[in-house]
Design a protein around this nucleic acid. Sequence first.
DNA 1: TTCTCTGCAAAAGCTTTGCAACATC
DNA 2: GATGTTGCAAAGCTTTTGCAGAGAA
Lengths: 135, 135
Amino acid sequence: MSISQATELLRTAGIPVTQQRVEIVRAMLSFPTHLSADQVFARVRQSVPETSRATVYNTLKLFREKKLVRELIVDPERLVYDSNTSPHYHLYNAENGQLTDVSADELQVIGMPSLPPGLQLEEVDVIIRVRTRSG
Amino acid sequence: MSISQATELLRTAGIPVTQQRVEIVRAMLSFPTHLSADQVFARVRQSVPETSRATVYNTLKLFREKKLVRELIVDPERLVYDSNTSPHYHLYNAENGQLTDVSADELQVIGMPSLPPGLQLEEVDVIIRVRTRSG
DNA sequence: TTCTCTGCAAAAGCTTTGCAACATC
DNA sequence: GATGTTGCAAAGCTTTTGCAGAGAA
């Protein structure tokens, strides 16, 4: 993604543009990806070496609030950021950390319980955990 | 759960019996519960104050391997241990940490993708994330 | 000037590890 | 005595926070 495209995307989202944010957008949103905060940090460092880890972490939280990315909780070790914010599910291989999207057309959750009064649905996560076949 | 019941349970699972393990079984498996490692630690401390945090953490990992408990990854802050190891799903309120079981009879996942060759299904997690109604 | 953003370093929180002491068989 | 278990403290990791300086409006 070009710098001007990333800049435009930030403006549309109502986020003040800075060089770091542009680079974080480019790292996260150029292609569909699943990246940890530290992976984003490493990528951004390649273009802007004087970027701090704290800025990357804070910016990803900001992007999440603005719905530019989604946080995935699939691994106890680290949070993963997903560039795809539309409803979909995941297939996860803990052995190699590989995360694959499963579209919401393909897979459906039926029989959703009615929520107790006062509660509001936020989202439904489905994680299909797999491992390399042993036997 | 009585000490002798917990002891029997450990024997059946093929786990050498120790006082700490008996107390961890009693804390985790007397009733259906969802507890963090530290919550288990706090409970065990009440009966056996000279128990160390490391022992609780290690023992819970051991119990997971032996399928006495299940690890739930619902919150990036901490791991939660579930006393219910049979297939079921969860409703989670991040605001207060409350976790509720949803039975597999009630809720079903349909359209499971066929796994790439060499991969084996381990489990399917469904987490219904809710929050207190704002509007 | 005023407000926001950034970098650095330190802190925080959960979990694991190293090691010596202790139990158990 | 060999093996496995425990406690303690320290280390490890990811993530957050405090604060001063830099930048933008």
